[in-house]
Amino acid sequence: MTDATAKKWLTLAQAAEVLGIHPTTLRRWADNGSIPVYITPGGHRRFLESDVVVFVKHQEQQITPNNQQAWVSYALVETRHRLQTSLPPAGLTAFDAEQREEQRELGKRLLGLIMQHIAMPVDDDSLLIEAQSIAVRYAQNSIANHLSVRDGLEIVMFFRDSLTEAAMQMPQVAQLDHEAQIRLLRKINQIFNTIQLALVEYFHEQLPPGPQS
């Protein structure tokens, strides 16, 4: 038996049933390259059963909801510890009580966003758009308090470091395997890269040309 005849192909509906998702979702994943697909001369999508099995196994290795919650809890502890034991960015003191409360709400939105991003089997552009909106609101508050783009980035990096440190400790905290830890770090970096770029872009759009300290 040749390799070609040994391969078992699945239709879109069959592969979607194996994955437990709607065919429309699988069609989108196939079109954006998240799962290998073959297009027949007639324009129909076909999936190798072996590719679908590999995809399923990969999903089984994703971070569980319990591990997500463990990371959030540890991230909050790490952030409080850093605020108490190290010198926080100077820009944090520029916000009044009402603005600090809004910053906390933005932080909660950000944590929820990262948890959604972690849970998604493939990247969802809508979550990155939401991250950009958080960055814009944060930039607006920063500009209103006469902070520079450097000040804003220092604050973002302070919290990024806290969340990254929490992710680095996850194998000890929740017995997270190496592959899942790498995925967690990648997701955190993807969100924060989006936020930092959006922050800089908003500053450049709103402020007149000139050096930013």
Rank of each mutant, 00 (worst) to 15 (best):
I35Y: 01
R104S: 14
P89C: 04
A70R: 07
S50Y: 06
D96H: 13
H58Q: 15
G107Y: 05
I63Y: 05
L106D: 04
G112H: 02
E102H: 09
H58C: 05
S50F: 04
A75K: 01
Q59N: 12
N67P: 00
A97M: 03
W29A: 03
Y38H: 15
S34L: 07
T64Y: 00
H81P: 00
E49G: 04
L87F: 09
G43Y: 08
R100W: 02
V72D: 03
F47I: 12
H58T: 12
G91A: 08
Q84V: 12
A30D: 10
L113E: 04
W71Q: 02
A70V: 04
V53S: 10
E105P: 00
H81V: 00
P89H: 04
V52L: 04
R100K: 15
N66Q: 15
K108V: 14
P89T: 04
Q68V: 13
G42C: 10
G112Q: 05
F95K: 01
Q99C: 00
E98H: 06
L76G: 05
H117W: 01
T79A: 14
F47Q: 08
R80Y: 04
Y74P: 00
W71P: 02
P88A: 08
A75H: 02
A94M: 11
L110P: 00
G112V: 01
E98D: 11
I39V: 15
S73Y: 05
A70L: 12
Q68P: 07
L106A: 07
E49H: 14
T79D: 00
T79M: 10
D96K: 09
E101V: 07
S73V: 10
K108L: 15
E78I: 06
L113R: 03
E98G: 06
N67K: 12
A75R: 01
L111M: 15
R80I: 05
L83Q: 10
D31N: 15
G43I: 11
D51E: 14
R80Q: 11
V53R: 13
Y74C: 02
R104A: 14
T93H: 10
R45W: 10
P36Q: 10
Y74S: 06
E78N: 09
E102A: 09
R46W: 07
T85I: 05
F47N: 06
R109P: 00
